[in-house]
């Protein structure tokens, strides 16, 4: 089996330096070898845990964080907005 490290990295928005691709592939393959040994399993999955059904809160607006508090952590912000590079030509 081969893993196209460049393709997976692209999907994950990561960049692996060329000289490290081989090492990454080796390590990934050893992990894949480990998970390859899963036995064949059939049967429908039980998606929900019957002993603990999830419950979402009611869809009612509640107080949230203030804009300036949220923007404090932004790498770049301007006029109350997050700044990103130009995305549309």
């Amino acid at each position: 089996m081969k893993i196209d490290i460049r393709h997976v990295a692209k999907l994950a928005r990561l960049r692996i330096e060329e000289d490290r691709i081989e090492k990454f592939e080796e390590e990934m393959l050893s992990i894949i070898d480990m998970v390859e040994n899963l036995p064949p399993i059939s049967g429908a999955g039980k998606d929900l845990d019957p002993s603990n059904p999830m419950e979402l809160r009611k869809d009612i607006p509640t107080p949230s964080l203030k804009r300036e508090e949220v923007l404090k952590n932004a790498p770049v912000s301007q006029s109350g907005c997050l700044v990103v590079p130009k995305t549309v030509d």
Partner: peptide, 12 residues
């Protein structure tokens, strides 16, 4: 990175 890559791979 290794785990993100592994996760991306098994979900691909």
């Amino acid at each position: 990175k290794r785990r993100i890559m592994l996760g991306t791979f098994v979900l691909s």
